[in-house]
Design a protein around this nucleic acid. Structure first.
Lengths: 194, 194
DNA sequence: TATTTTATTGACAATGTGTTATTTAATCAA
DNA sequence: TTGATTAAATAACACATTGTCAATAAAATA
């Protein structure tokens, strides 16, 4: 699977680099395949040899850096319940920090709708799995798990985009602290005292 | 300001109707000005007599229905603190219900990035104002107000889009109940016991 | 009814898309 | 290192969409 022609790797890397560069300079919507190809120093027809569209190129790039994050998280979290593990959240904000320009582009003012949607959906699925794992077969919560998961995902998404958009006003550790405080900190959220 | 030529009102209404129709049939990105004009039974050049772009037409339509919501909320809420007022949240979900197709289009799988961003930003501002009003000059909260506001806004946004995307699985009252439970229900959120 | 405003029509250049056939160049395996 | 294979460059193509414009027809208002 990794036995690709050196030229292919080169071209794809150049195209990815070009997109990641351009996306920090102008809204994603305004970027043309011609521009990406020019910046990558590759013929436009060559682009179509590798990707069917701009979206496909972006999707692959996002998938790659997303995989990095998942590995980071899995490496750090050791089966702790989510409300005890600071590391999930911290890894997230360090990840955002590392790919700052890219996330600013896809989550910010000229954000990419389907990417926002996908990210929110992904976090929701992730949180739902965590919640099911750790709530397990305890008494059914007052609030349905899918809604609980979506609530947490919404908060994560919102704080993440806020942080990126406002030029990282707090360090990742602090943001992680806020996030856990808000979503799990009070402890009663999962089984409300009402 | 409301003294517009009858033809102008007619044309703009037709264009708005056409867009709202089309947006339920295909992704917003895929809709052309030609299509909107055809559906509105108006010449394409006429479109440009009223709007500079597709986005401008959408923006105006959203602003109009958004104003409806604000009026609804203000009419119902009587200075109650946000965590006591069920009506804010309920008005929101009834509003989503009323303009279901439109919100499905702008918040869903093929959502419109800048609209999502704007909505989240708007809710954040709204929540921040509410929080400042009602927390007032009490002791400074552990979590900065902008972050608190963004957290609540994120939850509202996430539950709203989830509800629309999943074809309104609960009635508006129930969703409002969940939302208030999650964001204000436990009461300790504003001044965590930690 | 006369005047003003709006809408229609058909055309235009400009830009971007997606594809193709041909030529040139790089890579890989023997 | 050579020869076969694969990829990239090039130039051209039809097509769609955009934004604009001038001339004409139609409608509304005073």
């Amino acid at each position: 699977m990794e036995t690709l022609d050196r030229r292919v790797r080169r071209t794809r890397n150049q195209l990815g680099d070009a997109l990641r560069e351009l996306i920090t300079e102008k809204p994603y919507e305004a970027i043309t395949i011609q521009e990406i190809s020019d910046r990558a120093d590759v013929n436009r027809a060559t682009f179509y040899l590798h990707y069917g569209s701009k979206d496909e190129l972006l999707a692959q790039n996002l998938r790659e850096i997303f995989d990095e994050l998942v590995i980071q998280i899995e490496a750090r979290a050791e089966g702790k319940p989510p409300w005890e593990s600071m590391v999930h959240a911290q890894a997230l904000f360090e990840h955002l920090d590392e790919h700052f320009g890219l996330y600013q582009a896809v989550l910010g003012q000229h954000g990419v709708g389907y990417v926002m949607h996908q990210i929110l959906a992904y976090i929701t699925t992730h949180e739902e799995r965590l919640l099911r794992d750790y709530l397990g077969n305890a008494a059914a919560p007052v609030i349905p798990i899918p809604i609980l998961a979506r609530h947490v995902a919404g908060s994560i998404f919102a704080l993440a985009s806020w942080w990126v958009e406002n030029n990282r006003p707090y360090p990742p550790e602090t943001m992680a602290h806020f996030l856990l405080q808000l979503c799990y900190g009070v402890g009663t959220l999962v089984t409300p005292e009402n």
